[in-house]
């Protein structure tokens, strides 16, 4: 089944239960995560649980530290303090090999794509499979064509170089690369930014598909409320370095939390004031 004919199933996950089952270890648990660049505090004690097999959507203004949060979880940025647990294990205490093992099962879509421009698209898409020696180079081309089709790109795109693609196409190739190795945990940093609404909906469907069919845990950042409701089971909002609200994604817009509702409706007036970034 391709993600294209899954539209109807989005409703299902909108009704899913949010309250974590008692005792179930969250896939990702953040406690008191802090990070400052120089004297600019970006994360100021982030607490967050992401349930295994569910999809979490993070909202927040531009520059509020969403991307930094993901990079901290992945170990690409060392947080100043705080706890990061994946599957109940403190990542700070893991050996480099154990960290690598976690990354082996993780997919990440970078906000700007971060495609390797020295490699053709198909090698980008299957980079992880090739790096892990799970596939031969010949098989990788076919696999790349398959995944490219899932993100709505023709197989012939595989032979192009990333610099020959439009911004939205690059985004979709990056998405294909993030999911090609069928990871357990997938991070999407603004997966649908820069796509047209229809393609955005297709990509949302694909993300839902990854979570539902592969049982993956998804952690997405988005500014698009329709998209957040479609892909999210849970949602959380980050503001001034803290999580100010979390709850079911389906309630976005009528959460009763003034900040979230202002953000969801995109109103100028409200508790969140546009600040000049320092």
């Amino acid at each position: 089944m391709t993600p294209f004919d899954r539209g109807a199933e989005w409703n299902v996950n909108q009704q899913s239960q949010i309250t974590p089952k008692n005792g179930a270890t969250p896939k990702i648990r953040l406690r008191g995560l802090r990070k400052a660049f120089g004297d600019k505090v970006v994360l100021d004690g982030v607490d967050l649980d992401v349930r295994a097999g569910h999809s979490m959507v993070i909202l927040g203004g531009s520059g509020s530290g969403k991307s930094v949060t993901i990079k901290c979880i992945l170990g690409l940025i060392e947080p100043d303090s705080g706890l990061i647990e994946i599957d109940g294990r403190d990542v700070a205490k893991l050996s480099p090999d154990e960290r690598a093992a976690i990354l082996d099962r993780t997919g990440m879509l970078f906000q700007n794509g971060a495609l390797f421009d020295s490699l053709p698209v198909w090698e980008n898409v299957c980079f992880k499979l090739l790096a892990q020696r799970r596939i031969t180079r010949a098989a990788a081309r076919d696999r790349a064509a398959e995944v490219l089709e899932q993100v709505g790109l023709a197989a012939s795109v595989g032979d192009l170089s990333p610099s020959e693609l439009s911004g939205g196409m690059q985004k979709r190739v990056a998405l294909a690369r993030a999911i090609a190795a069928q990871p357990d945990i997938i991070f999407f940093d603004e997966p649908t930014t820069g796509l047209d609404p229809i393609m955005g909906a297709v990509i949302d469907g694909l993300i839902v598909d990854c979570v539902k069919r592969l049982g993956a845990t998804a952690f997405s950042i988005t500014h698009d409320m329709a998209s957040a409701r479609r892909i999210g089971d849970d949602a959380a909002m980050i503001h001034k370095g803290k999580i100010v609200w979390s709850g079911p994604a389906s309630s976005l817009g009528e959460t009763g939390n003034e900040m979230v509702d202002q953000f969801a409706r995109g109103e100028r007036e409200g508790p969140i004031q546009m600040e000049l970034r320092k």
């Binding site: 990079k71 992945l74 170990g75 690409l76 690598a100 990354l103 082996d104 993780t106 997919g107 990440m108 970078f110 906000q111 700007n112 971060a114 495609l115 390797f116 421009d117 980079f127 992880k128 790096a131 892990q132 690369r177």
Partner: peptide
């Protein structure tokens, strides 16, 4: 590669 996150991407793609 550094300033466009490609080096970070390598790390997340099982490559040192």
């Amino acid at each position: 590669m550094r300033v466009t996150d490609q080096i970070d991407a390598l790390t997340t793609l099982s490559t040192d």
